[in-house]
Amino acid sequence: MTDFLRLLFNSLETGSVYALAALGIVLIFRTSRTTNFAQGLIGTFNAYIAAFLMLRFGFGIWTVALAALVTAFITGIVIDTLIIRPAAKVSPISKQIITLGIIMVLIGILPWFFGVDSMTLPRFIPTEYSLTIFGANLRYNTIFVIVLSTLLMGAMFWFIQFTKWGLATRVTASDETTSKLMGVPTKTVTMVSWATAAMLGTLAALFVAPRVSVYANMLLTVQISAFFAGTLGGFSTFFGPVVGAFIISFARNFTQFYISDIWGNVLVYTSILVFLYFKPYGIFGKKPTKKV
């Protein structure tokens, strides 16, 4: 029971992190028609900013987190206006390689700005505040991460589903040319999507940072899992990837604990592959209709 609960809490926490990252990826995929491989690194970059501010000026975690979110917003806008917009006519595959270019630029900038030493970020709520349920230790920070991510995602779904800007996002996602003709400011929508995605990535980075240290590849696993979550849930909806994220996080943690430490991942990936063979567009995905 103790192990089970511990795994449950852990899976919920990692699941929320994956979901945040996956949501960012889907947002960009839907509005810019590209797979953003730089999602993880944009988050890492801003986590570096947070850690650097904390180390240099001694601000608290809440202040630097807020600062990192602001810089994330700016990063997203800068990337969209300087790089993605001029490349609007480039094919989707070339756009993916452009995001690889962004990765390389950011990886080059990191040691230049912040030095080569790895840095640390503390948890939002210190570790000593925790409660015990059936012998399993549950940190308040874990609860905070889960609740905040859930609230954020809920707010985003509400925003996308029920506001005018959300409608603009959805129509841009479904057909950019037509929405442009209908007077939807697609440029702004894309820009804001990049900014939001960058903020989501940064939040994921800030949640992961206390468990590992802040280093260039800290979000690698998260990002790959987020891609997998997107595929499992289906890229054509916004909530599919979130569900996929939790499924992957649960499956991974439980197989790794109960079946095999080494082969857990392989097992989960293989079963997802088999699942995808029968349902190629994910759990909630629909086959895109194509005109011939």
């Binding site: 790089i83 001029p86 490349a87 006519k89 480039v90 094919s91 070339s94 390689i97 452009i98 690889l100 270019g101 962004i102 990765i103 390389m104 630029v105 950011l106 990886i107 080059g108 900038i109 040691p111 230049w112």
Partner: peptide, 20 residues
Amino acid sequence: GDISYIFSGILIILVIIFYP
């Protein structure tokens, strides 16, 4: 030196934008 990564990244982006 160490920051050569930045230039390789910029190189990739520029080539793709100008020669898609």
